[in-house]
Simulated assay, not measured.
Amino acid sequence: MEPLIHGILLAFGLILPLGVQNVFIFNQGATHTNFMKALPAVITAGICDTILIYLAVAGVSVIVFSFEWLKLLLFLAGFLFLAYMGWVIWKDNPTINSKREQKGFSARRQITFATSVSLLNPHAILDTIGVIGTSSLGYTGYEKWMFTLACIVVSWVWFLSLAIVGRKIGQIDGNGKFLNYLNKTSAVIIWIMALYMGYQFYVLLGE
């Protein structure tokens, strides 16, 4: 049971903070009048997280952290990516009214955006590889797969829950004020994460 509980707590700890991925999934739930139309974003994010977690547990973390230049590249890319995505979220103005269905992303756009904020987000990659990957090194065999499965299940449950909560908020928040407030708050948090990535890049560069 220890690997299972460890995986659940660790995955929740990593996925709970507001980030680009979470805000996007939440907004898709809120801006579609039909919950099913937000599923492409949920499923894509779930699949991407599953891939990242599997690769991390499979030993990619050992490879990544063996190369100093690769860590530098990830931190620099993370700073630039998060700074840009923070700006995109800050400028976004969710429309929650009778025309909100037109504001929601199409299935194709949801898949593209969810993939980019999942697989092209260096901060998420470092979280997965650096934390989940290294934590899994303490387990072998059956216990390692229990740990891995727990992390994956938490991701899927979390994304589904986010979209469902977003849908409910969208029904209540008729003028979109709450979503605008959430976007502004999320953008500030994402910029703080960007500064952290930039600081880590500066520290590594000076070593």
Rank of each mutant, 00 (worst) to 15 (best):
residue 1 M to G: 14
residue 1 M to C: 11
residue 2 E to V: 13
residue 3 P to A: 08
residue 5 I to F: 15
residue 6 H to V: 04
residue 6 H to W: 08
residue 7 G to T: 07
residue 8 I to S: 02
residue 8 I to D: 03
residue 8 I to N: 06
residue 9 L to K: 13
residue 9 L to Q: 13
residue 10 L to F: 07
residue 12 F to T: 10
residue 13 G to Y: 11
residue 13 G to L: 11
residue 13 G to W: 11
residue 13 G to R: 10
residue 13 G to A: 12
residue 15 I to Y: 00
residue 16 L to K: 01
residue 16 L to D: 09
residue 18 L to G: 02
residue 20 V to Y: 05
residue 20 V to C: 12
residue 20 V to R: 05
residue 21 Q to M: 13
residue 23 V to F: 11
residue 26 F to Q: 07
residue 26 F to T: 04
residue 26 F to D: 09
residue 26 F to A: 00
residue 27 N to V: 03
residue 27 N to D: 01
residue 28 Q to W: 02
residue 29 G to C: 04
residue 30 A to K: 00
residue 31 T to K: 06
residue 31 T to A: 06
residue 32 H to A: 03
residue 33 T to G: 15
residue 36 M to C: 10
residue 36 M to P: 08
residue 37 K to A: 11
residue 38 A to Y: 05
residue 39 L to N: 02
residue 39 L to W: 09
residue 40 P to K: 10
residue 41 A to I: 04
residue 41 A to L: 00
residue 42 V to I: 10
residue 43 I to D: 00
residue 43 I to A: 11
residue 44 T to G: 00
residue 45 A to Q: 06
residue 45 A to I: 06
residue 46 G to C: 00
residue 47 I to S: 09
residue 48 C to I: 05
residue 48 C to D: 07
residue 50 T to E: 02
residue 50 T to P: 03
residue 52 L to H: 02
residue 53 I to W: 06
residue 53 I to H: 04
residue 54 Y to T: 15
residue 55 L to W: 07
residue 56 A to V: 09
residue 58 A to L: 13
residue 60 V to T: 15
residue 61 S to G: 13
residue 61 S to I: 12
residue 62 V to Y: 12
residue 64 V to Q: 05
residue 65 F to I: 07
residue 68 E to F: 13
residue 69 W to T: 12
residue 69 W to L: 11
